[in-house]
């Protein structure tokens, strides 16, 4: 299988706090990898390192076989889409402008082409009817779907989701998860940091469990959820069962 992301011996610390210790992990084309673990376990930091929003202290990250620390950082970033917990739609633009700006300024597409691609992707996430609304007037779930469309417009090879549903209420969580499931079915390569165990179990092809900056366990969702080997994962999953 062609490897889209490959991380070797990644380490990162903030001042004296070691957040990531020797992370080794790879994602193949078409895979949907869910990263679970309690808060502070380093999941988000690892994800942000892949997009170089955080600078790794040591180790290597390859995307499509290229070391991301070589060459142009913007070139790399446009190949890796990112969806944030707090949506981060551009507040000074409408929904469709959010999807167009980088197409025009980074990919140098013509305005007509950018509009066409933006509409296509907005349709995909079910937000095309809102194309001309100011992005500040949308609900959380709608914002997140637009954020996904914005990332898709860049024709990225892989999408990173940083707790995409953590800021949403239980009902709107579903509309975002449905979009993500649809993308997964279409064969999009995705890495999802999530607290939605149902999503991790049902949609992802592989689950990675992190604890205190290391990958403790990884494997098929069914096997991981039904018979966790490590004590840490048992404890972590126990909390969800008890709810």
């Amino acid at each position: 299988m062609e490897k889209v992301i490959e991380i070797k011996h990644l380490a990162k610390s903030f001042d004296k706090l070691e957040v990531l210790k020797d992370i080794n992990f790879s994602v193949s084309k078409g895979e949907v990898v869910s990263v679970i673990g309690s808060s502070g376990s380093g999941k988000s930091t690892m994800l942000r390192c892949i997009n170089l929003l955080e600078m790794p202290d040591s180790g290597e990250i390859f995307v499509n076989g290229k070391n991301i620390l070589d060459g142009n950082i913007n070139q790399h970033r446009k190949e890796v889409g990112m969806v944030f917990q707090s949506f981060n739609l551009f507040n000074n633009m409408s929904v469709i402008e959010n999807c167009m700006i980088a197409q025009i300024k980074v990919l140098k597409r013509s305005k007509e082409e950018a509009i066409k691609i933006a509409h296509e992707n907005l349709k995909k996430v079910g937000m095309d009817a809102f194309a001309d609304k100011p992005s500040t007037q949308l609900s959380g779930g709608q914002k997140q779907r637009v954020a996904i469309a914005r990332a898709l417009c860049m024709d990225c090879q892989v999408l990173l989701f940083d707790e995409p549903t953590s800021a949403l209420d239980p009902v709107t969580v579903q509309e975002v998860l449905d979009v993500m499931k649809k993308l997964a079915d279409e064969g999009m390569t995705m890495v999802v940091v999530t607290h939605e165990m149902a999503f991790a179990r049902d949609v992802s092809s592989r689950v990675v469990f992190m604890e205190k900056g290391i990958i403790v366990e990884e494997g098929e969702p069914k096997q991981l959820f039904t018979s966790p080997k490590s004590e840490a994962l048992q404890r972590f999953l126990g909390r969800f069962v008890n709810q």
Partner: peptide, 22 residues
């Protein structure tokens, strides 16, 4: 909000483009 900048950078916009448009 710092997220605005991160979002712009994450889709490949340069420092100046992020400043200018976002």
């Amino acid at each position: 909000d710092k997220g605005q900048e991160e979002a712009a950078r994450s889709i490949g916009m340069s420092d100046w483009q992020t400043m200018r448009y976002v």
